[in-house]
């Protein structure tokens, strides 16, 4: 099976990239923040669970999963975080004022699904 996440983005042949080096999502991708309820520690606020948005930017460099870091893991596979754009009306059905309101938040790729 062809796995593009193994290859360098500029098409260099024969260079295998480490896990997590290539972002899973690209700017413009529509995504949904997952609805799940971890206990202990998380960095995805509850008000954003299940909300749909768009990847605005890939945050570089990649980082360690902050839910694991919260328990003292200072190393491990790095994953990408993404700056996600979400309209305020998607988050708050009764959003007051102008419809031109938006939220931006950084979300780790373990919390995003493609839609």
């Amino acid at each position: 099976m062809h796995d593009s996440s193994r290859e360098a983005p500029d098409g260099q042949v024969g260079i295998v990239l480490a896990w997590g080096e290539v972002p899973v999502f690209r700017p413009g991708d529509p995504v949904r923040i997952l609805t799940r309820y971890p206990v202990g520690h998380y960095r995805v606020p509850i008000y954003l669970r299940g909300k749909r948005g768009m990847v605005e930017a890939v945050v570089e460099p990649a980082g360690i999963d902050n839910e694991e870091e919260g328990y003292g893991r200072n190393a491990g596979i790095k994953l990408h975080y993404y700056r996600i754009a979400i309209p305020m009306t998607e988050i708050w059905s009764d959003y007051q004022g102008s419809h031109r309101g938006g939220l931006r938040v950084e979300v780790c790729e373990t919390w995003l699904e493609r839609i």
Partner: peptide, 29 residues
């Protein structure tokens, strides 16, 4: 959830035609 009201409490009124965009910091940015 209500950035315009919050801004108004600081004495800052943003016209309706201007988008108020809120960035919530959660990780390393």
């Amino acid at each position: 959830s209500e950035p315009r009201s919050v801004l108004a409490e600081f004495g800052t009124v943003i016209p309706d035609e201007v988008e108020v965009r809120v960035s919530d910091s959660t990780a390393m940015v």
